[in-house]
Structure formats: C-alpha cells, structure tokens
Amino acid sequence: MLEKFTKWKANLAATDLSDQAEEGQLPQHVAIIMDGNGRWAKQKGLPRIAGHREGMKTVTSTVRIASNIGIEVLTLYAFSTENWKRPKKEVDYLLRLPERFLNAELPQLIENNVQVRLMGTTEDLPSYTLSAVEKAIEDTKHNTGMILNFALNYGSRFELVEAVKLIGKQVERGELSADMISEQHIHEQLMTSQLKDPDLLIRTSGEIRLSNFMLWQLAYSEFWFTDVLWPDFKEQDFMEAIAVYQKRKRRFGGV
C-alpha cells in the first residue's frame, strides 16, 4: 500500500503538501460529494447533461486512483433523495449514468478486485438502473479489494428515520428497551453498518455544506473542500486532498 502511495505522491512535486504529508496515514474510507457538473456545462455553454457526462469520466479516473493507492472504501454521492426535484430530463439522464458507467467499467472493476455496493433506497429507481447495480454487486461480491459504495437515491435524514423505525419495532417486540439503545446500536441500523465511518469527506465546486449526506457517519470525519468543479477534478486534486488529510491531527474530542 505504501509503495503505491509513494509513487502517486511523487507526482505531487508541484505542491509543498506532498513534502509535509506523513506516509502510512492513508484514510481508510473516503466519501465524495461530486458537485459542479451543471456549472461546468453552463460555463462552456453546454446543456447540464453534458456536465454529467463529463463527470462520469471523473468517476472512472477517481475510482482507479483510489483503488491504486490503497483506499479501502470509496463512497460516491451519486443521486440524492432531493435530486428528484430536478427537471425530469436531467433526472432521467442521471439515473442512466450508473448503467452506462457499470456497463463500461465492470470488467475493469472485476479485474482490479473492486467490490461494488449500494447505499440508498431502491424505491422509485427505474428497472434499468437497479438491474445494472444489482448485476455489478453480484458479479463483484467476492472481490476483496476496494469497496466502491454508491450512494444512490440516498438521503441521510431518510436513513436516520428508517433506523429509528427499526429500533422502534425492536422495542415493540420486546427485543430491546429504551435504556439499551446506544450509539453502536444506532450504527447497526444504518445503511453503512458494515463500513467504517468516513475518515475524509471531499466536496467539489466550492460549496461548503453536507447536503443531507451521511450526517451521522461524518461526525468526526476530516473535511476538504475545493473550488474545482467535479468534471475538472483530476488526480492532482485527489492526491492533494489525501496529503492535506495526512497533515491533520485527529483527536476525536481528546487532546
């Protein structure tokens, strides 16, 4: 893992962050809010869907980089529960992207030992989206490399409400009492129950907010925001985020 990272880090000679980063402190779980596709297209006088199409290329390169340097989990915020509010044409295009990405990249994901997972509600997802994701999950379920976790039709408040409902049913059945409920018990009801919480959150496009993304899980994550629009997010940007993360002292409320 460290040898892989050292090779990637050598490409950061243009920034002094690489010289200050401590090797061996790679984030295990990186989560990304991929923002700025629409603005990228607008700046170029193109329709918004052109930005989403270009952004898919960035997904491909980012997955490759993260897997190559030894990231254990990469969670990508692909479609939120709020994105249904967008124009129907754009929503339809966004929900075609997982199918297009997986049809093109699944062989490479399998070859690179990447395991695909889904986080979100499958309700209302079109059959072509769901079938493509389910096939990728099935075909990669025995892979032992990086977990590529798509947050698709995902919203953190929805997730938390569903977790509360599950706990409420356990209490109703007499399986659990109120004073037995702990942080660990809540964690076990979340869609990420089998994953470590993100160590690093990256958000592109200059926006500085969480947008209903992993509100519980990001409690002690390190945040890195960049003005770079997602279609322009390159290897250099990803590695800069990693280098900044490595400089930070994580205390988790301690000293």
Rank of each mutant, 00 (worst) to 15 (best):
L2W: 10
E3I: 10
W8N: 00
W8D: 02
A10W: 09
N11T: 11
N11D: 00
A14V: 05
Q20E: 11
Q20H: 12
Q25N: 11
Q25S: 13
L26C: 09
P27M: 11
A31W: 03
I33Y: 01
G38R: 11
G38Y: 00
K44R: 15
K44T: 05
G45M: 05
R48L: 02
G51A: 08
H52F: 12
M56Y: 10
V59A: 15
V59M: 15
S61N: 04
S67L: 10
N68C: 13
I69M: 04
I71N: 09
I71E: 08
V73K: 02
L74A: 11
L76N: 08
F79I: 05
S80Q: 04
E82H: 10
W84Q: 06
K85L: 12
P87S: 05
K88D: 13
D92C: 00
Y93Q: 00
L97C: 10
P98Y: 05
L102W: 11
N103L: 12
L106Y: 05
N113M: 15
R117F: 04
L118S: 13
M119V: 11
T121Q: 05
E123W: 02
E123I: 12
L130G: 05
S131D: 15
V133D: 07
E134H: 07
K135I: 00
I137W: 01
D139I: 00
T140Q: 14
N143M: 13
M146P: 15
I147K: 11
L148G: 06
L148P: 04
A151R: 04
A151Y: 03
L152Y: 04
Y154Q: 11
G155W: 07
R157E: 11
R157V: 13
F158M: 03
L166I: 11
G168F: 12
Q170T: 04
E175Y: 10
D179P: 05
M180Q: 15
I181F: 09
S182E: 06
E183L: 04
E183V: 08
E183C: 06
Q184S: 12
H187R: 10
E188W: 02
L190P: 02
L195D: 14
D197P: 06
I202H: 07
R203C: 02
E207K: 03
I208V: 03
R209H: 14
L210F: 04
N212V: 13
F213L: 07
L215V: 10
L215I: 14
W216N: 12
L218E: 01
L218T: 01
L218H: 00
A219C: 03
Y220K: 01
F223S: 00
W224M: 00
D227A: 05
P231T: 10
D232Y: 07
Q236K: 10
E240D: 14
I242D: 07
I242N: 06
V244C: 06
K247H: 07
R248C: 07
R250A: 07
F252G: 06
G253A: 12
